[in-house]
Amino acid sequence: MVEKRPLLTVLSHLVLILGVLAVAFPVYLAFVASSHPQSTFLSGVTPLLPGDQLLNNYGQVLSGGTAVQGMPPLAKMLQTTVIVALLITVGKVLISFLSAFAIVYFRFRFRALAFWTIFITLMLPVEVRIIPTFEVVASLGLLNSYAGLTLPLIASATATFLFRQFFLTVPDELAEAARVDGAGPMRFMKDILLPLSRTNIAALCVIMFIFGWVQYLWPLLITTNEKFYTIVMGIKRLLDIADGEPQWNIVMAGVMLAMLPPVLVVIFMQRLFVKGLVETEK
């Protein structure tokens, strides 16, 4: 039984409020900075109240106006990043689901070895294998393409492990009943496992979408065409202004636009995301 103590309740709420302020205040400052003209920042002091240039600044950064000094429109970068993030998300979830299904429900030689081979790749992030991966992508002629941006990133040992652990909790009686009813492996996967995995898939989709959205090193390495620049690359280019100070109002407008899609994904999928992470009863 949990005791209700007013002092502890007040203290816990105070800690939560301080935590929210610590996270939200920098975001609020970025929003305020994106609503002021560039001249406001010449003094080196960031105002605390929004200005009157909000629509103008966001319009410039989306259209790639003259104030962005030849910068490609961020609207195109947002579109490219959405496509890349969605392809990575769908690819990771689909491949991980199928690989975990094969490892758990099919009996073949070296099954355990196959799983552990996949699992130890967690120790090999993209940064470690980036040179041979780039060599393969370049040899296949996939530079400056959506395939080059996404294919090296769609395999996920983490998602495969999570799906495998979930499939192990599914009662064997379900598989036996499906077999008795004449359902094949694909029918069992589609009609039973897929609906049961809905919350897990939702949680992984949120995580993988954000993973794909914030990619910087790999797109920077394989893209030279502005058509395939991602939003994170765009923010870096906004900061790189030759012989001048960064236009912080434009930079912060780009930051706010880059943050908006992941935040919306988390908000709209919050219920399924939390349920997929904490649900224990299947």
Results as ranks from 00 to 15, higher is better:
residue 50 P to F: 04
residue 238 L to S: 00
residue 79 Q to M: 08
residue 161 F to H: 06
residue 40 T to A: 12
residue 268 F to N: 06
residue 100 A to I: 11
residue 153 L to I: 08
residue 217 L to N: 12
residue 146 Y to G: 05
residue 125 P to Y: 10
residue 109 R to A: 14
residue 218 W to G: 02
residue 3 E to Q: 15
residue 57 N to F: 01
residue 68 V to Y: 00
residue 179 R to Y: 08
residue 134 F to R: 13
residue 20 V to W: 15
residue 150 T to C: 14
residue 112 A to C: 06
residue 187 R to Q: 12
residue 235 I to P: 03
residue 241 I to M: 10
residue 74 L to W: 03
residue 14 L to I: 11
residue 264 L to H: 04
residue 184 G to R: 12
residue 127 E to V: 15
residue 218 W to E: 06
residue 4 K to N: 14
residue 45 V to C: 00
residue 29 L to T: 09
residue 172 D to H: 13
residue 158 T to Q: 11
residue 153 L to F: 00
residue 116 W to Q: 11
residue 61 V to W: 01
residue 194 L to T: 06
residue 235 I to S: 06
residue 151 L to S: 11
residue 221 L to S: 07
residue 282 K to I: 14
residue 246 P to V: 04
residue 17 I to H: 14
residue 29 L to G: 07
residue 16 L to R: 13
residue 38 Q to R: 14
residue 278 V to A: 10
residue 112 A to S: 15
residue 256 M to V: 06
residue 134 F to K: 14
residue 18 L to H: 07
residue 145 S to F: 09
residue 155 A to T: 14
residue 83 I to Y: 09
residue 89 T to D: 01
residue 194 L to A: 10
residue 94 L to A: 15
residue 49 L to T: 09
residue 75 A to R: 05
residue 224 T to M: 06
residue 135 E to D: 14
residue 2 V to R: 14
residue 155 A to M: 10
residue 148 G to W: 07
residue 82 V to L: 15
residue 86 L to Q: 05
residue 187 R to T: 13
residue 128 V to G: 14
residue 61 V to G: 01
residue 37 P to A: 08
residue 80 T to G: 02
residue 189 M to T: 00
residue 201 I to K: 09
residue 220 L to W: 10
residue 33 A to V: 10
residue 117 T to L: 09
residue 168 L to W: 07
residue 26 P to Y: 13
residue 114 A to Q: 09
residue 180 V to P: 00
residue 27 V to T: 11
residue 12 S to L: 13
residue 168 L to F: 05
residue 89 T to W: 08
residue 242 A to W: 01
residue 204 L to W: 03
residue 202 A to P: 03
residue 21 L to V: 15
residue 214 V to I: 14
residue 110 F to T: 07
residue 223 T to E: 03
residue 259 M to V: 11
residue 87 L to Q: 07
residue 127 E to H: 13
residue 19 G to F: 10
residue 269 M to Y: 00
residue 174 L to A: 02
residue 209 F to L: 09
residue 25 F to C: 08
residue 168 L to M: 01
residue 234 G to L: 02
residue 67 A to D: 08
residue 267 I to H: 05
residue 157 A to W: 01
residue 195 P to S: 12
residue 74 L to E: 04
residue 26 P to S: 05
residue 187 R to K: 13
residue 91 G to T: 11
residue 122 L to Q: 15
residue 120 I to M: 15
residue 170 V to D: 02
residue 170 V to G: 03
residue 206 V to P: 10
residue 62 L to K: 06
residue 183 A to T: 04
residue 53 Q to S: 01
residue 64 G to T: 01
residue 140 L to G: 07
residue 240 D to K: 13
residue 167 F to Y: 14
residue 178 A to H: 01
residue 181 D to G: 08
residue 53 Q to D: 00
residue 169 T to Y: 01
residue 177 A to Y: 03
residue 225 N to D: 15
residue 187 R to I: 06
residue 6 P to N: 12
residue 236 K to E: 08
residue 49 L to S: 07
residue 251 V to Q: 05
residue 142 L to Q: 09
residue 209 F to H: 01
residue 148 G to S: 07
residue 127 E to M: 11
residue 31 F to K: 02
residue 198 R to E: 03
residue 199 T to P: 02
residue 196 L to N: 03
residue 130 I to N: 04
residue 4 K to F: 11
